[in-house]
Amino acid sequence: MTVLPKDIPGDSLKVTVGTANGKPGDTVTVPVTFADVAKMKNVGTCNFYLGYDASLLEVVSVDAGPIVKNAAVNFSSSASNGTISFLFLDNTITDELITADGVFANIKFKLKSVTAKTTTPVTFKDGGAFGDGTMSKIASVTKTNGSVTIDP
């Protein structure tokens, strides 16, 4: 049996954390987006972790974005102690894959008090994996961190 590389060099799934701005007490939304989904033969499963400074940001909610089908079954998240974990699994293993680019999740943060303008990162942590529509590992994932700026 011969195994051929399935990824064209330079191609990767792009996962990007967005940015937001606000004043202390505001609730802002930071999107997590996927790009080049079709090039990577869709997404059938993924789990990953984001870190944030809990002294500056309070997670209000984490909701599935419009590219997630049947989110009540296929999407899960949790947030505590400065870490947000995400889990997606197409429970049907074929019919509810992520097949389009767009917003995977929206994180709502309540901004805490600061004395001066502060930009705090929302960054990928170690761990996690992504699988394509056949549940094979997506070897190349380009992750881009985001941030939230609090301006009193």
Rank of each mutant, 00 (worst) to 15 (best):
S76N: 10
G25N: 09
V15P: 08
P121T: 06
V62K: 10
N47E: 00
A79I: 15
T118K: 10
F48V: 04
K110N: 04
P152D: 04
N91I: 11
S147G: 06
T119D: 05
T142F: 04
G65I: 04
T83V: 15
G22N: 14
D151G: 15
T16G: 07
A38P: 10
S147N: 05
M135Y: 15
L50H: 10
G10S: 11
V30Y: 10
L111H: 04
A72V: 14
T83W: 15
D11H: 13
P121V: 05
P9K: 14
F34S: 05
V30H: 12
T142D: 02
A54V: 12
A71F: 08
G22Q: 10
V62F: 06
A38W: 08
S76A: 14
V62A: 11
T27C: 13
P66V: 10
I107G: 00
T119C: 13
S80D: 05
F88A: 01
F75Q: 07
T94L: 08
P31F: 10
F86E: 02
N81M: 15
K125N: 02
P24D: 08
G133P: 00
D36A: 13
P31R: 09
S85N: 02
S12Q: 08
A71G: 14
P66C: 13
I93Q: 02
L4V: 13
F124R: 04
V141N: 05
T115G: 06
P5H: 08
A139Q: 05
V43L: 07
G65P: 08
M40E: 08
F130Y: 05
G133H: 04
T120C: 03
N91R: 02
P152F: 15
E96T: 01
N81S: 15
V59Y: 10
L89S: 01
V60E: 10
S61T: 09
L97S: 04
P121A: 06
D95I: 03
T123F: 12
S147I: 07
L57I: 12
D36S: 11
N106Y: 08
T120K: 14
N70R: 13
V37H: 11
T19V: 13
G82S: 15
A38L: 13
T33M: 12
T45S: 03
V3R: 11
F104K: 03
G18H: 13
I107S: 01
K14H: 14
M135A: 00
L87M: 03
T119A: 13
T19Y: 13
G128K: 00
S55N: 12
N47V: 01
L111F: 05
V68A: 09
L56C: 10
N145M: 02
D101Y: 07
L4S: 10
F88G: 01
L4H: 09
T94P: 04
G25F: 13
P31K: 12
G65Y: 08
V141E: 00
L4T: 12
K69R: 10
T119N: 04
K110S: 04
T45W: 00
L50D: 07
S80Q: 14
T92I: 00
S55V: 14
K6S: 13
V141W: 01
D132W: 03
I84L: 14
F75K: 02
Y52N: 09
D36Y: 09
S136D: 01
S136V: 01
N74K: 04
V114H: 08
D36T: 08
D36K: 13
L50A: 08
V148A: 08
D26Y: 09
V17S: 09
D101P: 05
P152R: 15
V28M: 09
L50F: 08
G18E: 08
I8G: 15
K108T: 08
G18V: 09
V114R: 12
G102S: 04
S136K: 03
N81Y: 15
S140C: 04
D63W: 11
A71D: 12
K110P: 01
L97Q: 04
S12C: 14
F86G: 03
S113V: 06
K137A: 01
T33I: 11
K69H: 12
K137I: 03
Y49D: 00
G102Y: 00
K69N: 12
N47D: 03
C46A: 01
V148M: 06
D126L: 15
N145T: 05
T27Q: 10
T45I: 01
K110C: 04
S136F: 15
S113I: 07
T118E: 03
D63T: 14
V114K: 14
E96G: 03
T27I: 11
S77I: 14
A139W: 15
G82D: 15
T118C: 06
V3Q: 14
S85F: 04
G44M: 14
K23Q: 13
G127D: 04
G65A: 09
V43P: 01
N70T: 10
N42Y: 13
I93L: 09
F48A: 08
F88E: 01
G146Q: 03
T94S: 04
V59R: 09
F86W: 01
A116K: 08
L111P: 05
S61Y: 13
G82Y: 15
V148W: 02
D7L: 12
G127I: 00
T115D: 07
P152T: 15
V3S: 10
A139P: 15
V32A: 10
N21R: 12
L50S: 07
L13S: 07
P31V: 08
T119I: 11
S147L: 06
G25D: 11
D63M: 13
K14S: 13
D101K: 06
G25C: 14
K108H: 03
V17H: 11
D90A: 03
T120L: 04
K14C: 15
K112M: 05
D11R: 11
V68W: 01
T118P: 08
D7P: 11
D36G: 13
T118G: 05
I150V: 14
L56R: 10
T115N: 03
L89G: 01
P152V: 14
G18W: 12
L4C: 12
V60F: 09
L111N: 04
T27H: 12
P31W: 12
S147K: 05
V62T: 12
G127W: 03
A129K: 01
N106T: 06
V15I: 06
D53E: 07
G65H: 11
K39I: 09
L56N: 08
A79L: 14
V32L: 09
K69Y: 10
S140P: 10
V32Q: 11
V17M: 06
A129P: 00
Y49A: 01
I98W: 01
T19D: 13
I67N: 09
Y52S: 14
A54G: 13
K39F: 14
T149S: 15
A105Y: 01
I67M: 09
T45N: 00
V43A: 07
M40D: 08
P24L: 12
A54D: 11
K125T: 02
V60L: 08
K39M: 08
S55H: 13
V68E: 12
I67D: 12
D101C: 06
S147V: 06
A139C: 04
A64Q: 07
S140D: 03
T94Q: 01
N91P: 02
A72T: 14
D101Q: 03
V28W: 07
C46L: 13
L87E: 02
V148Y: 05
